[in-house]
Write a protein that binds this DNA or RNA. Sequence first.
DNA 1: CTTGAGCGT
Length: 124
Amino acid sequence: MIRLPNILNGRLYCSHPSASSQPPNNKLFVAGLSWSVDEKSLNDAFSTFGQVTEVRIMYDKETGRSRGFGFVHFSKDEEANCAKDAMDGKAFLGRPLRVSFALEKVRGAPVVVPRLTGVGNGDK
DNA sequence: CTTGAGCGT
């Protein structure tokens, strides 16, 4: 029987004010996953510590298998810090889990291209 | 029946 901590009670049992080297983002980088782990498994595992808003696992576009790492978005940064401090270093599906804060890596983000309106010689 | 550090469209 799985006993879930009453996190919805507004009281996180893992609210440890541990000083983080990096600014706690609500985005967590989860690695060390097994090649058989799916998003729903991580969602169920990380939703135990907080409100998971997004779970993305990177899969290979050639073989279709999981790359072994993914990303978990939380509703609050404190929940992410809690889940990180709780699941980091722990074993998940037979493999040691490695959780850390995700970097601000965005490739598909639409960069605002400054349109040269009236700049320079708009004539001709 | 494959591998094992990492940072995403």
